[in-house]
Design a protein around this nucleic acid. Structure first.
Lengths: 239, 239
DNA sequence: CGGTTGTTTGAACTGATTCAATCTGTGTGG
DNA sequence: CCACACAGATTGAATCAGTTCAAACAACCG
């Protein structure tokens, strides 16, 4: 889906929308149509939310670099990350208010367009509609897998699964390249429904089991097949 | 969304697709267009899966009566229900294989159409496309709420939340009518990511706290506002 | 350097699981 | 109408995975 280069730290900002979409699998002609849509470039810093939950979301958003999360907060203040958007992926507009907020995981650049402009472009290009339909279904599929992850797997499997998914979505060659882990342990906890303390212990465990080797945020996969097994990760849902 | 009558046991089967969709909020003219699409009626019994995970899903499916679940099974055999479809709701076709299976919660009737027929009807009626787009976004929203539920709430809140959501999706008047709970405790466990043993204990707790009163599968809500609080249920995500 | 964010570790605690047994309700066939 | 089977609900006891609280440590940045 994405070039492995996107797994590195922050590229210089200002990647054109067109290039981002082409990398995400959109045919060149369609990318051009979308590129013509009026849009502006915004730089997102982690830590502070970019959009709050419960607000209108009449805008399209495409991630050109970095990593962006959708999150919700329970009334008792516990935070859950419900979806991720890698470069080339986007957050589509919706009628009414969105129940989720948006926040960058690492420094990111996003392109923002108006909902109505987007709608027109899509209406004029049935092929685009198909393209986004597929993206939505992929996101649904990932969401379902996340439910299995938080609902039915133990804490080790949850963290391992997230690592496998992240490496795969980055398009990483796990045999040769290390993963630059973009998440803090607190963020992994917010994705996998645990505490950061436990995430830390799981990491230590995975390392003790010689499945991974950490060097700061860099993770080398020492036994990928075994990690897949521990994570019960089957990449089919990412197709 | 649905008449409260659908909360009762199984109506006689064979509700026309058109009526089902109109009840679900689709304008009459559009319902007629979809009704003209070739489709067949199928009766689903609980307990045995209707569609297995990992199979092609080039069909549309609308629930006319009963209650239907999408589920996934982890490689270690643990089952997770990832979405529900109440009467009037549907499962849209997708390219390639679906990672989830489909199973009835209670005896249900569904209408099945071919993916290509559905696509044509939708292409010819842009209003339909908008309608389904909204439905998809609602489902996404529900999915996110479920992630918060399994990821961040304690077992009592999870079960309470499911009860609140179910009553709301049935369009029940909680002050006057009881909810006919369609789920076995095992199914509630499969939705909320717990064991059936614990679900049983949570029910006993809720009853001891005088939040609900059970009579077989029938649940009366004795203190709806307090139940909402316990569940941290805020119905906005169902809009 | 000092401040801030993130990681690591220990000890005590607890919510939920596991395992196993029992009980209840419903439908079926004789 | 009873006996039997079967699915589901209920309960208890033992165990354990993950949380909570608290403190120390490391890395980064202006």
């Amino acid at each position: 889906m994405n070039s492995s280069r996107t797994a590195r730290r922050e590229p210089t900002s200002g990647v054109p929308l067109k290039d981002t979409l082409i990398k995400a699998g959109l045919p060149t002609t369609l990318a051009a149509a979308l590129d013509a849509m009026p849009h502006r470039n915004v730089h997102l810093d982690p830590r502070r939310p970019f959009r709050e939950p419960g607000m209108p979301r009449n805008e399209v958003m495409f991630v050109t670099s970095g990593l962006v999360a959708k999150y919700k907060t329970d009334s008792s203040g516990r935070r859950q990350i419900v979806a991720l958007r890698f470069p080339g992926e986007g957050v589509l507009p919706r009628e009414g208010n969105a129940s989720y907020g948006i926040q960058a995981i690492v420094k990111s650049d996003v392109l923002i367009g108006k909902s109505e402009d987007f709608d027109h472009v899509v209406e004029d290009n049935p092929e685009l509609s198909k393209f986004f339909w597929r993206l939505v279904q992929r996101n649904e599929s990932i969401g379902y897998e996340w439910m299995v992850n938080t609902g039915r797997r133990d804490s080790t499997a949850r963290v391992a699964h997230l690592l496998c998914e992240t490496a795969t979505r980055y398009g990483l060659d796990v045999q040769s390249e290390p993963l630059f882990n973009p998440f803090t342990q607190q963020q992994i906890a917010d994705i996998t429904g645990q505490t950061s303390v436990n995430v830390n212990r799981v990491f230590a465990d995975l390392e003790r089991q010689k499945l991974i080797k950490r060097n700061g945020r860099e993770i080398r996969f020492l036994d990928w097949p075994e990690l897949l097994r521990v994570a019960s990760f089957q990449p089919g849902y990412l197709d």
